[in-house]
């Protein structure tokens, strides 16, 4: 700190009596404010730096031109269809959609993971195929989130398929009464 170092040169050059000692000013400077400033700037840079670089998610598309014989056939028992509606609504059904829509269930991005895990555990891995059908009202984020669920749950086979008119109608009808739609605040967070 700003203390004075008045010890002189260690007593080697003792001046004679009567000779006034010249007051030696210390060369030490109080560095505390400088340290403060330094750390302030460090904290600023740490907080403003986005340490995380953007990552990339790989997606391989199927070849649509493949003949029907070459296309993968999915077993009905292993099929799990996820439909994406507007406002982060998620719907799903297993196997083939019942004509009366009895197995058509509503969910959201938080709960769908449990459904996927349940389906994965109850189905033979070789048979399991997840079909993702985003409706026209769903967003890019919804699609990425659901694709992300596939990688989180290590689903090897999944397909991005266009929604059929029947399903689109069901989604639209269900959106009025789905639990996710009545509490939009709960679903805006996505996953």
């Amino acid at each position: 700190m700003a203390e004075m170092d008045t010890s002189g040169g260690g007593g080697k050059h003792k001046k004679g009596p009567g000779v006034k000692k010249g007051k030696k000013m210390s060369t030490r400077v109080d560095l505390t404010p400088m340290v403060d400033l330094g750390f302030l700037l460090i904290t600023f840079f740490i907080f403003t730096t986005t340490m995380s670089q953007p990552t990339a998610m790989k997606l391989n598309l199927p070849d649509d031109t493949a003949t029907p014989e070459e296309q993968n056939k999915a077993k009905e028992s292993g099929a799990f269809t996820i439909l994406l509606g507007k406002d982060n609504n998620v719907f799903f059904y297993e196997g083939i959609l019942a004509p009366d829509g009895a197995n058509f269930k509503s969910s959201n991005f938080k709960d769908i993971r449990n459904e996927i895990i349940r389906k994965k555990q109850s189905t033979d891995t070789a048979d399991l195929v997840v079909v993702i059908k985003p409706s026209d009202e769903s967003t890019y984020k919804n699609v990425i989130d659901i694709l992300d669920e596939m990688s989180i749950n290590l689903i090897k086979r999944y397909a991005l398929v266009d929604i059929s008119p029947v399903e689109d109608q069901l989604v639209k009808v269900s959106e009025g009464e789905s639990p996710a739609a009545t509490t939009p605040a709960a679903t805006t967070g996505g996953k």
């Binding site: 998610m57 984020k141 990425i144 992300d148």
Partner: peptide, 12 residues
């Protein structure tokens, strides 16, 4: 505004 994912690969 890009979405989030668990993908760990750095974008090329």
């Amino acid at each position: 505004q890009t979405p989030n994912s668990v993908a760990a690969k750095i974008a090329p």
